[in-house]
């Protein structure tokens, strides 16, 4: 597999604030990599650095195993934060500028406007668009010329639920076409639904990296209680597919590994002679997992 992007020890400070700190990761062709982190964790700065609009204090990056430079950017469709266009120009003229900048013809403009559902507004001035439409135009601009690599920063920003679903669908289709996508987002759900891999950032540092389904899988959580709580706790400790999360006065919170159902657990406890009074199960939200990941990280400054 070809390496699309290699980032090594990237560091960038703004004054005293370290926006990105010694960041390294690699993106392989065809991967959909989510860059996940809370607001201010350095996602946008990282993308700004790899797109060459900001200069790193130290570290390096390489696109397509080649020297960096503006020419690499011509093969990358990028959408950074909020859309930037000329307000007085209509959509088609704005995209013409993009096409010229990237050294393409104008023949792809109609297609990308169709993809994002803006073809009926192609002659409207940009400033007349709603925020959601502007965001779609930015996506159209990223898709222009069918680039093999997409760098998307909060692509669903400012969209309504319908728009969010549509944009995710577009991104999914792009990934099915074999495109390499780097997607920055603070929305876990988005990363989980769209990405294959994830890099988690906090305060500019990488705190976790891996496959989305390994790092962010949804575990089944349950709360159990019984008359004899101590016996229950001791018994649960012996089960291999159960891990105790929290012991409270009147219930114990546990997580179940995949494959173990609450029914089986109940049956097993009865066999051990423990009659449970309540067994409540709920799925642990991705958000709480993510918060745990972020909270547990020792590198807090």
């Amino acid at each position: 597999m070809k390496t699309i992007l290699k980032v090594e020890g990237l560091t960038k400070s703004f004054g005293k604030i370290r926006a990105v700190s010694n960041l390294s990761f690699e993106v392989i062709q065809g991967q959909v990599v989510g860059v996940l982190g809370p607001n201010g964790s350095g996602k946008t700065t990282t993308l700004g650095l790899i797109l060459g609009i900001k200069f790193p204090d130290s570290g390096s990056f390489q696109w397509f195993n080649r020297e960096k430079g503006p020419n690499a950017n011509k093969h990358i469709g990028a959408l950074i934060e909020v859309p930037y266009f000329y307000p007085y120009l209509d959509l088609e003229k704005n995209l013409r500028i993009v096409a010229l900048v990237r050294g393409q013809g104008f023949n792809d403009i109609q297609r990308v406007l169709d993809v994002v559902g803006l073809s009926n507004r192609s002659k409207s001035a940009y400033y007349t668009l709603s925020l959601g439409m502007k965001q779609r135009l930015a996506l159209a601009s990223a898709l222009l010329g069918n680039p093999d690599v997409l760098v998307l920063d909060e692509p669903t920003n400012g969209l309504d639920p319908e728009g969010i679903a549509e944009v995710r669908e577009i991104i999914k289709k792009q990934s099915e076409m074999g495109k390499t996508i780097i997607l920055a987002s603070h929305i876990l759900d988005e990363v989980e639904k769209v990405c294959s891999d994830v890099v988690i950032l906090k305060n500019g540092e990488k705190i976790a990296q891996g496959k989305v389904n390994e790092l962010l899988s949804e575990k089944v959580l349950a709360s159990v209680s019984a008359e004899n709580m101590d016996a229950l706790e001791n018994c649960l400790k012996t089960h291999q597919k159960v891990s105790i999360q929290q012991v409270k006065d009147n219930f114990i919170q546990i997580s179940l590994e995949e494959g173990l159902t609450t029914l089986e657990l109940n049956r097993w406890l009865i066999e051990k002679g423990i009659i449970i009074s309540t067994l409540e199960f709920h799925k642990k939200s991705l958000e709480s997992q993510f918060l745990e990941l972020v909270k547990d990280h020792p590198n807090q400054k």
């Binding site: 950017n73 990028a78 950074i80 930037y84 266009f85 000329y86 307000p87 990237r102 050294g103």
Partner: peptide, 21 residues
């Protein structure tokens, strides 16, 4: 100054223009 206000300099750098261009 429009290019700075609209942040279109930034966009054109992202899209592949060089600073010299």
């Amino acid at each position: 100054s429009n290019e700075f206000q609209f942040r279109t300099f930034r966009k054109q750098l992202i899209d592949g223009l060089s600073r010299n261009e």
